[in-house]
Nucleic acid binder design. Structure first.
Length: 507
RNA sequence: UCCUUCUUAGCUCAGCUGGUUAGAGCACAUGACUGUUAAUCAUGGGGUCCUUGGUUCGAGUCCAAGAGAGGGAGCCA
């Protein structure tokens, strides 16, 4: 039915076509109506002129409201002023579905409102671009692993055993038994790797963490490769190649989308540089400010950041005052008043964000200064350290006590486990967690007891050590966190079509 | 679970130390304007100021409790 797509307009220059879509914007003056049509592949301005279409059709076009659906036929004309470079001069307009009082206006909205209207919010250009980048990332992930000889093999979503404790699992009824929604397919991944060699899972994951932060979701998509005959260093090489591949694909294929969301791609282009690999010991020194990175110190640069935030707040306050003074002067045009008002609203939102930061940074400074050797990194510690780098960093060899039971004890120093976390730059923090797996059955049993996990649930897992164990490793990538970083989003909730998070089940 | 900020029109926000009928812009409706890209002009409709209780001659404004939301800690990808 749909023959002509907006993305292909260049092919149809000078021809008559019929476009089908939704009116994303409309402006009108006497004798002319401008409808910006979107069809999912792009946006195109359509001009309806009274002279060309006549009284009746013109009235129809005038009735078109925001997000009503319609069919427009007409000739494609080159017009450099337009996004995409073309516009359509309409010969006919047919309304398909009307749209009365569309709630999302062409202006700033609050998050709560937009989240309630997520099903409509997705229609905006920015969300369109993010979803296309998400799609490109997913495609690139599959391409990478398939080209590297991995087999996609998925783990079950209902599980009878808790991988790392039950406190953050969703409980459900499975024919009278308690089942949990999977929070990781990793243990199954190990079993699959011992059959197919190199595998990856790609599926949803559920965590009942009552977290309300910009990087947590209750339901998110995770990619978990697992490889037989890989040690932690092979694993780190793979992670680095993988992230570089996916990022490069996005840079190459999503140029237009990155422009729409205003992403500064210079940092993403650094992906070709090697990722720094820091041992836990080094990373702790950097967090505590005892060691500089590229001449930058974690503590002092955070203090500077705080000062910058405060200076910015002062500047915003002054600009708001200035604009408010301007508004008081009589005789300003109505349109200019509206523009200034919109600017003030925008500035106020930025001010609120700055105030938030002004409250948070001292807490982060405090926790960085008082970081206790041996602890796991908190969200703020990750932020503190990744601000110093312009590429992802890998932190490996963690104190075994703070990490999962299945990680391999470092043969060289038994205080450590061979885990690796990848932290994205620009303050985004952990996007990948992985490591080499423990192969020693006795050590595993010890760990399971130490974590007070039910031994009988892990019998099958221990079989993997009893029947031909080999060195193996793997990692888990949080898809939404990668999307969030690559798009530099302020919050993970924009990286998935319908986010599920603490306190959010609708729409 | 804890800390912190917030809740006034469909949306984004004003509303000073409590004081007549609660304001603006956007959106919407009607009309005017031959080309607009969130900036043309006029007019108009639209509010249980989150809820409950208290202080007061008088509460959107002060106090208390509750509900909802934002951000952070813990936990994590």
């Amino acid at each position: 039915m749909q023959k002509y797509l907006i993305k292909d307009l260049a092919k149809y220059e000078g021809q008559d076509v019929t476009l089908m879509g939704w009116a994303s914007n409309k402006r009108e003056s006497k004798g002319l109506v401008f409808i910006v049509l979107r069809d999912g592949t792009g946006w195109c301005q359509c001009v309806v002129s009274l002279e060309t279409v006549g009284e009746n059709l013109f009235e129809e076009a005038r009735k078109v409201s925001l997000e009503s659906s319609l069919t427009i036929s007409g000739k494609i004309i080159k017009d450099e002023r337009q996004m995409g470079g073309f516009e359509l001069q309409a010969t006919s307009v047919t309304l398909i579905g009307e749209s009365i009082e569309y709630p999302i206006a062409n202006k700033e909205h609050g998050v709560d409102f937009l989240m309630d209207k997520r099903h409509l919010w997705l229609r905006t250009q920015r969300q369109w671009a993010i979803m296309r980048i998400r799609n490109q990332i997913i495609f690139a992930i599959h391409k990478f692993f398939q080209e590297e000889g991995f087999v996609q093999m998925d783990a079950p979503l209902f599980t009878g055993n808790a991988c790392e404790g039950t406190s953050n699992l969703f409980e459900t009824d499975f024919y009278g038994d308690t089942a949990y929604l999977s929070q990781s397919g990793q243990l199954y991944g190990e079993a699959m790797a011992f059959s197919l060699g190199k595998i990856y899972t790609f599926g949803p994951t559920f965590r009942a963490e009552k977290s309300k932060t910009r990087r947590h979701l209750s339901e998110f998509w995770m990619i978990e490769p697992e490889m037989a005959f890989y040690d932690i260093f092979d694993n780190m090489n793979l992670i680095e190649n993988f992230l570089r591949y996916v990022t490069t694909e996005v840079l190459q294929n999503c140029e237009k989308e990155l422009v729409i969301i205003g992403r500064d791609t210079s940092i993403l282009k650094n992906i070709s540089k090697p990722f720094p690999r820091l041992s836990y010991d080094e990373a702790v020194k950097i967090i505590k400010g005892e060691q500089d990175v590229n001449g930058k110190n974690a503590i002092t640069s955070l203090e500077e950041e705080l000062k910058m935030v405060q200076a910015r707040m002062q500047a915003i306050k002054e600009e708001i005052l200035q604009r408010e003074e301007k508004l008081k002067v009589p005789g300003m045009k109505k349109g200019e008043i509206g523009f200034n008002q919109a600017q003030i609203d925008k500035l106020k939102q930025e001010l609120a964000d700055c105030e938030e930061q002004e409250r948070n940074i001292p807490q982060w400074l405090n926790s960085a200064r008082n970081f206790e050797y041996g602890n796991d990194f908190g969200g703020s510690d990750e932020t503190v350290i990744t601000r110093l780098f312009d590429v992802p960093i890998m932190v490996y060899n963690w104190p075994h006590a703070v990490k999962a039971f299945y990680l391999k004890r470092d043969p060289a120093d038994s205080r450590f486990a061979r885990g690796v976390d990848v932290l994205a730059p620009e303050g985004y923090g952990e996007i990948v967690g992985g490591g080499e797996r423990e192969t020693d059955e006795k050590l595993l049993i010890e760990k399971i007891k130490e974590h007070e996990l039910p031994m009988e649930a892990f019998e099958w897992y221990l079989d993997l050590r009893r029947y031909g164990t080999v060195p193996h490793a793997g990692f888990g990538l949080g898809l939404e966190r990668l999307v969030t970083w690559l798009c530099k989003l302020p919050h993970v909730r924009e990286s998935i079509p319908f986010p599920r998070m603490y306190g959010r089940l609708l729409p």
